[in-house]
Amino acid sequence: MKKTIVKISIIFSFLLVTGLIFYFYFPQIWGEAVYPLKYDEYILKYSKRFNIRATLIAAVIFQESRYNSDSVSRAGAIGLMQIMPGTGRSIAGKLGEHFQINMLYDPETNIRYGSWYLKNLSDKYGGNTDYLLAAYNGGPAVADRWLAARGAPAGETKGFVASVKKAESMYVTLYPVLQEGQDVNLRVVVPPQPTLWEKVKKGLLFYK
């Protein structure tokens, strides 16, 4: 019995250490599995067209739908960037396009409308990522109240803002292609990361 417990403990410890090493030393591998990227041709196209960060678009898609173009929320938001039909109709009008609700299931259309909306909110809030994300999630009225009170968003909106910002930092690190050809003012600077050998030399097994 004791031998069995010892064997199980050794196997568990081995798997735990292996998992931690994999997590900290090979983020590119697990990162792309956790933070996938699809439709990058549309993301880059409309990032350039509307002058909004491609990494931000990618992060919003991840948070809103996990890149599922058929996603529909309980509130009725549709597609990759979870566009409400009323919002989609309004955006289509601003872009001079005919609108039908089923268009929101089309990846390119959804990304075009969502990117336009992000840019519109970015202009409204002076490029402040927190405010524009709060408005994207809860509506401009939510962001306006937050701005007027100089406070922080609460509840679901607070979680949405934090999650998208975390996701964007991952997309910046994992997918350099999203910043290629971007206006220099839109690029997100990533601090240089130490190599595996540098980590080993410093003796930081669980380097962050």
Rank of each mutant, 00 (worst) to 15 (best):
90 S>H: 12
9 S>W: 07
81 M>L: 10
103 M>E: 08
66 R>F: 11
50 F>H: 03
91 I>S: 01
197 W>I: 14
178 L>E: 01
142 V>A: 09
92 A>P: 02
110 N>F: 08
89 R>Y: 06
101 I>N: 13
133 L>D: 07
137 N>Y: 07
137 N>E: 12
45 K>G: 01
120 N>E: 07
117 Y>T: 06
65 S>K: 07
71 S>M: 13
178 L>Q: 01
182 Q>C: 07
111 I>F: 08
6 V>I: 15
27 P>G: 09
73 S>I: 09
101 I>H: 11
59 A>H: 07
61 I>E: 09
175 Y>P: 03
98 H>A: 12
21 I>V: 15
17 V>S: 08
199 K>N: 13
38 K>P: 12
174 L>G: 09
107 P>K: 12
125 Y>N: 06
105 Y>K: 05
30 W>P: 01
46 Y>L: 03
195 T>Y: 11
181 G>L: 07
161 V>L: 11
2 K>G: 12
109 T>W: 03
14 F>E: 06
57 I>R: 04
85 P>W: 02
13 S>Q: 03
167 A>F: 05
160 F>R: 11
172 V>W: 00
31 G>R: 10
149 A>Y: 13
53 R>Y: 02
52 I>K: 02
117 Y>V: 01
140 P>C: 02
168 E>S: 08
25 Y>Q: 10
2 K>Q: 15
